[in-house]
Design a binder for these strands. Sequence first.
DNA 1: CCAAAAGTGTTATGTCTACACCCATGA
DNA 2: TCATGGGTGTAGACATAACACTTTTGG
Lengths: 254, 254
Amino acid sequence: MTTKTRSQKVAAPYDPSQFPAFAVTVDVVVLTMSEGTLQVLLIRRGVAPFEGMWAIPGGFKRPYETLDEAAKRELGEETGVDSANLLTQFGAYGDPGRDPRMNVVTVAYLAVLRKVGVVVAGTDAAPAALIPVSDALNGTIKLAFDHARIVRGAVERVRADLDLTGAATAFVGPTFTIAELRAVYEAVWAVRLDGANFRRSVVAEDGWVIPTGRRARPGAPGGKPAELYRAGRMWKYGSPVRRSQPNGRRKGAS
Amino acid sequence: MTTKTRSQKVAAPYDPSQFPAFAVTVDVVVLTMSEGTLQVLLIRRGVAPFEGMWAIPGGFKRPYETLDEAAKRELGEETGVDSANLLTQFGAYGDPGRDPRMNVVTVAYLAVLRKVGVVVAGTDAAPAALIPVSDALNGTIKLAFDHARIVRGAVERVRADLDLTGAATAFVGPTFTIAELRAVYEAVWAVRLDGANFRRSVVAEDGWVIPTGRRARPGAPGGKPAELYRAGRMWKYGSPVRRSQPNGRRKGAS
DNA sequence: CCAAAAGTGTTATGTCTACACCCATGA
DNA sequence: TCATGGGTGTAGACATAACACTTTTGG
């Protein structure tokens, strides 16, 4: 049996009638920071199935493009954004019945946008909106297909990426304050970080953030104007800011 | 244009004649430790294309199984192993022309085997072998299709997993010594770790390794018999042993 | 002037690293 | 007994966390 199986798929030439055909789609989970919380870009479906529910943007992969190219194309078509940061593949989803009409395997991408707002508004007549990820994940907002699971995967990925590559700069604008950067970590990880220590560790990391010499104007309640930085390089692994361990992990923890 | 595109893929019902069909395969990169180095399980192809070259095992996804199930099934069929550790999906590959015969999108899985040896030998008449990953990646061994790229992705994933989840216990047997565990880290990360400090950090992590009370017999050159442990739980993030930063990262590094 | 936010200093505590040293075995 | 690898101790370097304090704005 093993021999037969392998001879069908590795040794023998493919015969298109011998294996099942699938539709392959590319879905893009667009994440951004807005009003201090992590938000996901969703589109409201106009037709069955899942009519009236929210879905993440996506579309069919074409035969003569790579998966990465398909993701970039879809992102542009759906949001009008030409190039997002961190357009990274994070998972494939192919459960039978995930689309009630046919066999669809989808390759999921994560895209991080710096500032959405007007971009989303101008994309299309179709109803698109930024929804807090917490609403999308706890069931407050019902998502079509298995898109809740896909969004969950995207959030887990971005959480790990923040820990691993210092990807936080992808969320903020071309120039930003240290406090804005800290807000990204606090929102994505759902933690509170000490401003003083955060600043030190960020600035100490050579080349991650680059001072511009300019300062931001304080908000309504006043305060000292914050220095403005721009993004430097990221790292393959080991971000300057790392998630602390959950409590009770180490022996002798209180 | 944007409206038309979306109406094709989100709003309108699918019409099977309107989108391209793909074959979807699941490929499994089987990694194991043998003779102190990281090895990958490869199968030699008997027919064109890429006849005589090495390839990673894999096969077509079936319509009524999930991707995870397909990976588990393929692993069993190809290696005779019923359940491997760390059978995790790590990437999808769909470049046009990656299979010269047709459009194939493959979803790649990583599997870690504790001890191979007799398992691989008994799998099948087909020529299968454990090859050092270094040979597979530096071109010493030519891989079929884009399998070199896929193996590279698997190695990057397992490197990150060691850092993130303490997955090293998946490589060693049901009971193991701390030195065996250290050898996993040293092989996968290509570093040298201090035995004394490694032991401390591993044992300090509550619940990761569990002492059995038994001891291993020393090898030929003698030495104190090592204590035997068995694997405890893994972590969502934050392994007890973490990769150190590359040099020159921090300001003021010599 | 006061409140608020940015940024600096300081200190206690914890962790990491290097390496000296002891322990238990095979030959 | 010697060589070898396992395991413990320890001191200095380094990193982390908590928080007091100074700076600079808006109102």
